[in-house]
């Protein structure tokens, strides 16, 4: 899902940077308001988790591969704004140091993986699981659905962004200047792979890790996106 440099026309990656700038700004404001030095490492850990989980390439039939993102898990535990920051940071390091995803496409990649994925996951989880602090069956179903649906929404957005390239940027002779495959092809390939495989992986990671973190009380969970690392058992019991 990491769009490289050269795949997107400037009239695509420009506006997507434009969309992301206010979101990054708002996220950083939000974090300044809700975090302090003590719980900032959680954000760093979440970012590192997203970075490393994306290194686990999974081969699928057809000779290609892909991976989970971890956005849904982070959104459920730390909230969507924290997820936006931590996944963006992972994507930035991937692009700058490892050439995974382009510099010009960083806005686009953040839009799909650090915005669409965590925000959809967060609201899907809240809708299904409610605000209860207990990690019971509803929470599990919510986490599983959030993982599956959110990565698929991100995949679909990626497919749309790539697939519109031959429609909006062609040379004088009508040859595509950037990514040449049509919408039909990109949607079939990218959404197909995520609906069948990577969605399941993201779903499993989301439900298993959030369940483990809740059960083991490594973190005190008080409903989605509401970890209070400072007040340990108190929130679990009171809410």
């Amino acid at each position: 899902m990491h769009i490289p440099d050269g795949y997107l026309s400037p009239q695509t990656y420009g506006p997507l940077y434009g969309v992301m700038l206010p979101l990054w700004y708002r996220a950083s404001k939000n974090i300044k308001r809700t975090l302090n030095k003590k719980n900032m490492p959680l954000l760093a850990l979440a970012s590192a988790f997203s970075f490393v989980i994306m290194m686990f390439n999974i081969p699928i039939p057809g000779g290609t591969s892909g991976h989970a993102i971890g956005s849904a898990l982070i959104a459920i535990i730390l909230g969507p704004w924290s997820a936006l920051i931590s996944v963006t940071m992972a994507l930035t390091v991937q692009a700058l140091v490892f050439g995974d995803g382009g510099i010009t496409a960083l806005g686009a990649n953040s839009f799909t993986m650090a915005f669409i994925a965590p925000f959809s996951a967060y609201y899907i989880y809240r809708f299904i699981a409610g605000r209860s602090a207990v990690f019971g069956r509803r929470q599990k179903v919510g986490a599983a659905m959030a993982g599956y649906i959110s990565i698929n929404l991100a995949a679909l957005a990626t497919a749309l962004i790539l697939g519109i390239q031959p429609l909006i940027a062609t040379s004088a002779t009508g040859q595509p200047l950037y990514f040449p495959y049509s919408l039909k092809v990109t949607i079939m390939a990218i959404s197909g792979a995520h609906l069948l495989f990577f969605g399941v992986v993201e779903s499993l990671i989301t439900v298993l890790v959030s369940g483990y973190l809740a059960k083991s009380k490594i973190l005190s969970l008080s409903g989605p996106g509401m970890i209070r690392p400072q007040v340990k058992e108190a929130t679990v019991e009171t809410t």
């Binding site: 440099d5 050269g6 795949y7 700058l96 040859q175 200047l177 040449p180 495959y181 990218i190």
Partner: peptide, 30 residues
């Protein structure tokens, strides 16, 4: 296998029969 849609401009060129000019220009930006 690499991820679908994460190829070099050359690889894309092989697949579709031409190398998109914009891809070639931007690909080694960084």
């Amino acid at each position: 296998g690499s991820a679908w849609g994460e190829w070099t401009a050359k690889q894309v060129g092989k697949q579709v029969g031409f190398v998109p000019k914009g891809m070639l220009a931007l690909e080694s930006l960084w």
